[in-house]
Simulated assay, not measured.
Amino acid sequence: MPAKKVLIILSDAHTFPLKKKSGPDAGLVVDQPSGFFLQELAKPLQKLLDAGHEVTFASPKGREPAPDPNSESLLAYAGNFYERRKEMELIEHMKRTNGFDRPRPFSTFSEDELATFAGLFIPGGHAPLTDLGDDPELGRILRFFNKENKPTAAICHGPYALLSTMKAGDGSFVYKGYKITSWSDAEENLMETLWGGEVEKVESALRDQGAIMVEGATEKVGGTTLDHELVTGGNPLAANALGDRFLKMLSV
């Protein structure tokens, strides 16, 4: 496969808003630590690099991204110490060689440069809830990829970033009517119970704007959804399948 350029969208946020429902902070909105979910970034990223593609990292303001602390735990890797080490080392390698810790601000990409990218990928983690869904510059970028029918991939909370298209252009949601899979409301409800607070729901937010949300048993165990140029997955179990499907789309 000829080498192509892929734009990877990251959040600048190291936390996301959590409205506490109980305890001394009941009713208050607190900052819950988060960032990119390691597996959801590393697995598709490794596949892109193995295929010889060139990746460019971008974020709202170009700040150093942070991993979601939960995603670096051995529990997240079902105790597989070696897999976790390999994926953490990949991110460190990207810092040394590819400017991962200095992503380019969205505003620095002209349409002429966006045209040189073959695809775009948005990993998950709760951080996108903070600064990607309402970013007009990201909306401009996504609108361009949508208009040009360029392969676009998003996983877990990453699809929340698609809402940014309403902050650019004519204000419409360009993925209205698309079939999309994301982190589900049911999965978020479990996290809310763990944290004792309320979180913005990705599935509901996208459905409210006209997306056709595809959820169920298949998606819970790593299934992906393809519609037009957009491929999406719901949770870390989908990371490998999403990466494979995205690679296939880039090869066309």
Rank of each mutant, 00 (worst) to 15 (best):
L242P: 03
A51M: 04
L132W: 09
I180N: 01
L142T: 05
T225Y: 00
E87T: 02
S107V: 15
E203H: 11
K86R: 15
G79R: 12
F117I: 03
M1P: 09
E83P: 01
E200Y: 05
K179I: 00
L18T: 09
K61L: 13
K248S: 14
M88P: 00
D112Y: 01
G243H: 11
A153S: 11
G99M: 05
D208P: 03
K61M: 13
S184T: 15
L120M: 11
F36H: 08
T181A: 15
F109E: 03
K248R: 14
T130V: 04
Y160D: 08
A241Y: 02
L250E: 10
E229P: 01
Q46I: 07
E40V: 03
L237Q: 13
Y77C: 04
V174S: 09
D244V: 05
A168T: 04
K61W: 08
A51D: 11
N70K: 13
A186L: 11
I9H: 02
S34H: 09
E137S: 09
K150Q: 05
P67E: 10
S184L: 03
T193N: 14
L10T: 06
E87P: 00
F36V: 07
R104H: 07
M94N: 00
K176T: 10
M166T: 15
K147C: 02
A42H: 08
D25K: 14
L90P: 02
A26P: 10
G196D: 03
M94E: 15
I122T: 09
P69T: 06
T108C: 07
D12C: 05
A217P: 01
A205E: 14
Y175F: 15
L48V: 07
I91G: 00
A241W: 00
N80H: 12
V202Q: 04
F144C: 07
H93K: 14
G27D: 10
L7S: 07
I141A: 02
Y77V: 02
G169A: 05
S182C: 14
T218M: 10
M1K: 08
G139I: 10
S73R: 12
L75E: 15
I9N: 01
K4C: 08
F173A: 06
E192L: 07
G62I: 06
I155Y: 09
H93Q: 14
V55M: 01
M166A: 11
G23N: 13
E54Q: 14
T56C: 02
V214R: 06
K95N: 01
A58G: 04
E188M: 09
I180K: 00
N235G: 03
K179T: 02
A127S: 15
A26M: 11
